[in-house]
Amino acid sequence: MKHKKSEVTRAKIVSAARSLFLEKGIDKTSVAEICRISGVSNGALFHQFKVKEDIAFAVFSEVRVEFWDRVISAMVVHDDPHDGIEAAVRASFAFQREEPGAAAFMSDVNASEWIARYADDTKPFYDIGVERGLAWAVPHVQAGRIPAVSPDAFIALVAGAPQWIGRVIRIGLAGSTLDSVADDLALCVRRAFTIR
């Protein structure tokens, strides 16, 4: 019973923090606001999480898993690897268009100094995404339909570039729209994985 109550308390904190972080960002959200929105006392919050970054990492983990599930799911439904790769690029852009708070939050966390402290905790959900992607890609590589590249290079092209471009557009440094760049980049990435 006590364990269940602890899980419920933790879920309330993460849910409240998620809505605040995605709307306002981590720096503009106070622990007091998280407590007020979640209905959890300050003591109960710090019983679950030692510092605010622990809460931010819990939210980041949820959002990142949702992002990767969306990108990989869009890719793996295609038998043609080039259609799958293009769909993954478009899914990365679609996530940013449809979930702007989540996209901004992921970008901010990825650029933070504190996230390096959570590298070991990040690895398991990163590895799950890589394994899912490899399970789809390896047969295509073995059949000579797409070139062999490292998972990190693949991720950089399919999801990293869209996230970077999305951030540049979001902060007003680019005049393009997500949709116009999605079309251009999806075609470029498709060509990059075409064996001639």
Rank of each mutant, 00 (worst) to 15 (best):
K2P: 01
E7T: 14
V8R: 12
T9S: 12
K12E: 10
V14F: 04
S15I: 03
A17E: 03
R18L: 08
L20K: 04
L22R: 07
E23C: 11
E23D: 15
E23F: 12
D27S: 10
K28D: 15
T29Y: 09
S30G: 12
S30N: 10
S30D: 09
R36Q: 15
L45K: 03
F46T: 07
F49R: 01
E53K: 13
V59P: 04
V59F: 04
F60K: 02
F60P: 04
E62C: 04
V63A: 05
R64L: 08
E66C: 05
A74C: 06
V77P: 00
V77F: 06
V77W: 05
H82M: 14
D83S: 12
G84M: 03
G84C: 08
I85G: 00
A87E: 01
R90S: 06
S92P: 01
S92F: 00
A94R: 10
Q96K: 08
E98A: 11
G101S: 09
G101C: 07
A103R: 01
S107V: 07
D108M: 11
D108K: 14
N110A: 13
E113I: 11
I115W: 04
I115C: 08
A116N: 12
D120Y: 08
D121E: 15
D121R: 15
D121P: 03
K123G: 06
P124Y: 01
Y126A: 03
Y126M: 06
I128A: 03
V130I: 15
E131P: 00
E131S: 11
R132E: 10
G133S: 05
G133W: 00
A135G: 10
W136C: 01
P139V: 05
A148I: 06
V149I: 09
P151T: 04
P151E: 01
P151K: 02
I155F: 13
A156D: 07
V158L: 10
V158F: 04
P162L: 07
P162A: 06
Q163Y: 05
Q163H: 11
I165V: 13
V168R: 15
G172E: 11
G175H: 07
L178E: 03
L178F: 10
D184Y: 13
A186I: 06
L187T: 11
T194S: 12
I195A: 11
